[in-house]
């Protein structure tokens, strides 16, 4: 068995404080994400015309995913340079693919 509770005391209190502040930011992130979601659903429920609604909910989705990546998945932190460049590589290929499938597939 691990002596968790003893170890907790030994953790540097500075570190603990930092973790706590980090967690505060995460909660703000979460609240924002829920807000974006609610707005997106509200826009659709209100029956806004497609030409306004679609770009709006797409932007909301992209921003929300940005929060997810940078805060929840810590891509803003140090040591994430290589992972984030490869994620952006993947996003680049993803964008090309989706652009293709919405334009040149011979409807």
């Amino acid at each position: 068995m691990n002596n968790d509770n003893m170890n907790i005391d030994k953790i540097n209190s500075f570190q603990k404080q930092q973790n706590k502040e980090e967690m505060k930011k995460q909660i703000i992130t979460f609240v924002l994400m829920i807000a974006f979601t609610v707005v997106a659903f509200a826009v659709v429920a209100s029956g806004l015309e497609a030409i306004y609604a679609v770009p709006l909910i797409l932007i909301l989705a992209v921003v929300q995913v940005g929060f997810q990546f940078y805060y929840f998945m810590h891509m803003k932190d140090e040591g994430h340079e290589v992972p984030s460049s490869l994620i952006f590589g993947g996003i680049w290929v993803a964008v090309l693919t989706i652009l293709t499938m919405t334009t040149i597939i011979w409807w």
């Binding site: 290929v93 090309l96 693919t97 040149i104 597939i105 409807w107």
Partner: peptide, 12 residues
């Protein structure tokens, strides 16, 4: 369905 999708996916 749309057969061109295969061609795109295959060549991507």
């Amino acid at each position: 369905g749309n057969a061109i999708i295969w061609q795109h996916l295959f060549w991507i």
